[in-house]
Design a protein around this nucleic acid. Structure first.
Length: 274
DNA sequence: GATAATGTTGGTCG
DNA sequence: ACGACCAACATTAT
């Protein structure tokens, strides 16, 4: 659910909320498997007295840079953060809670329990993921370099975090539509022009997602919402994602849905030919 | 009530 | 190297 634009939005909100510079006074874990690499008791103990020196995004990870540790939070499908001023009975989906030095409480809810918190001392995990698509190093030249020699369909490649960080199912489909490339096209078959279009489309689609504060599909609780429970506005701008049976905004051909890499995949069969 | 599908990722197996 | 499949889960739609 949260892809790069959603995670970026959350990180910005965490910063705006003034969490930087606060210390962690106490930590409580309600679901032990939300903690990836250690026992909850050790995890909590290690967090106490740590100062939040910085908060930033890397791929789909939220990174809390602490005094002597790095706290990585991956929201996976349904992870969400909330900030409360008052102690309250934990919500049924609440998995972790951090008590902060100014009296506020950072609460983490995760309906499907796929999200993971990792407390480490090194950047090892972050070093394993691919290039940041909105950074200045993601030039067309770099993009081309990443693509060369790969025998693979383009969509599964875009979803692979090892190569480019932060693209998920929604933005992959949207970028491919914008670049007029069929999701099943083999990378080796792409022309220079198509690669150029795709490079630009990836950046455009992600930037627009951030400008619109993320994509919130449907009405269900599980769907993405920000720190204050507010919804993103990007869903209104989607061209193909979950729009099967609707006309393509470019050519009016009916959008099709198929399954690729076990993910629902939406495309225009006319604009995006195989 | 059963079944399929849901935006993520990691592992296994061929 | 890559893809197909499953697993981790809870909820909603059909």
């Amino acid at each position: 659910m949260p892809e790069l634009p959603e995670v970026e939005t959350i990180v910005r909100e965490l910063k705006e909320a003034g969490l930087k510079g606060l210390s962690i006074v106490n930590a409580v874990v309600f679901w032990h498997r939300s903690i990836a690499n250690q026992r909850p008791a050790d995890f909590c103990q290690s967090l106490i007295k740590q100062n939040i020196r910085d908060i930033y995004r890397r791929g789909k990870f939220i990174v809390f840079l602490l005094t002597s540790r790095i706290l990585l939070v991956h929201l996976r499908m349904t992870g969400k953060f909330f900030i409360d001023k008052e102690e309250a009975f934990p919500h049924s989906h609440e998995r972790v809670r951090l008590y902060l030095s100014d009296g506020r409480i950072l609460r983490y809810e995760d309906q499907r329990k796929f999200g993971k918190w990792t407390l480490t001392k090194t950047e090892e995990i972050l070093d394993k993921i691919g290039i940041e698509p909105l950074s200045s190093v993601f030039t067309f030249k770099q993009f081309e370099k990443i693509l060369t020699g790969r025998h693979r369909k383009i969509k599964p490649f875009l979803l692979d975090q090892q190569h480019i960080a932060g693209i998920g199912n929604i933005y992959a489909d949207e970028a491919l539509w914008a670049a007029k490339i069929h999701p099943k096209r083999m990378i080796s078959s792409l022309t220079i022009k198509e690669k150029k279009n795709l490079h630009k489309a990836i950046i455009d689609v992600l930037k627009k997602g951030i400008e619109n504060a993320g994509t919130s599909l449907g009405e269900a609780r599980a769907n993405y919402s920000n720190l204050t429970g507010g919804r993103g506005k990007n869903q209104g701008t989607l061209k193909v994602f979950q729009r099967h049976t609707l006309p393509c905004p470019r050519c009016r051909t009916t959008i099709q849905k198929s399954v690729l890499a076990q993910r629902g995949t939406y495309f225009c069969p006319y604009c995006q030919k195989l």
